[in-house]
Amino acid sequence: MTVQEWVDAYARAWRDRDPDGAAALFTEDSVYRDHPLQEPHTGADGVRAYWANVTSTQDRVDVRMGRPVESPDGRRAAVEFWVRMLSDGAEVTLVGILFLRFADDGRCAELRETWIFDPGDHAPHDGWGT
């Protein structure tokens, strides 16, 4: 699996609110940090449980992923995301970056994300994601 294929599958899992699809993208010993000051979600089961919980309040999810920036060996990447959705019935925009480290088989071994969550429906600005 290439980095771009992984990013596309991640976006699809988010759009579809598919915890099993998300979990399949991670190794059994992966570390998923959705917040730098909280404990990570570990392994595919941890990712599945996190996604089942966090996506349960989301609706009309519009996920846009930027073009990934990859290390020369393809083992590390960073990619922006811009998500417009309903969260608990309210329009919100979530903008952030995923920092990724991949295993030899193309699944993610480590994910760290940083993001900002803002009320309202905000379109990406010109040049975003390139």
Rank of each mutant, 00 (worst) to 15 (best):
T2E: 05
T2F: 02
T2L: 00
W6E: 08
V7C: 13
V7Q: 06
V7W: 10
V7M: 04
D8N: 14
Y10I: 00
A11E: 13
R12V: 03
A13I: 05
W14P: 00
W14C: 05
R15F: 10
D16G: 11
R17S: 15
G21Y: 02
A22D: 08
A23R: 00
A24Y: 11
L25W: 13
F26S: 01
T27F: 08
E28N: 09
D29G: 01
S30D: 03
V31H: 04
V31E: 15
D34V: 03
D34Y: 07
D34K: 03
H35R: 12
H35M: 08
Q38M: 05
P40A: 03
H41T: 00
A44K: 02
D45C: 05
D45E: 14
G46R: 03
G46T: 11
R48A: 11
A49L: 08
Y50N: 15
Y50K: 14
Y50A: 11
W51I: 09
W51K: 15
V54Q: 14
T55F: 06
S56Q: 13
S56T: 11
T57D: 11
Q58C: 14
V61M: 05
D62T: 07
D62V: 13
V63T: 10
V63M: 15
R64M: 08
M65Y: 09
G66F: 08
R67K: 12
P68G: 07
V69F: 14
E70D: 14
E70F: 11
S71F: 04
S71M: 01
P72F: 12
G74M: 02
G74N: 05
G74W: 04
R75D: 08
R75M: 13
R75W: 13
R75Y: 12
V79T: 04
V79F: 04
E80H: 13
E80C: 06
E80N: 15
W82P: 00
R84N: 13
G89L: 07
A90I: 00
E91F: 03
L94I: 13
L94Y: 12
L94K: 09
V95H: 05
V95P: 00
V95E: 10
G96R: 07
L98R: 01
F99E: 06
F99L: 15
F99Q: 04
L100F: 07
L100E: 04
R101P: 09
F102R: 09
F102I: 05
F102D: 13
F102L: 08
F102C: 06
A103Q: 15
A103I: 12
D104T: 07
D105F: 05
G106Q: 07
A109M: 11
A109W: 06
E110Q: 11
E113R: 04
T114M: 08
W115T: 09
F117C: 12
D118P: 07
D118S: 15
P119T: 03
A123W: 01
A123Q: 07
P124N: 04
H125E: 05
H125D: 05
D126V: 05
G129K: 02
G129N: 07
T130R: 13
T130K: 13
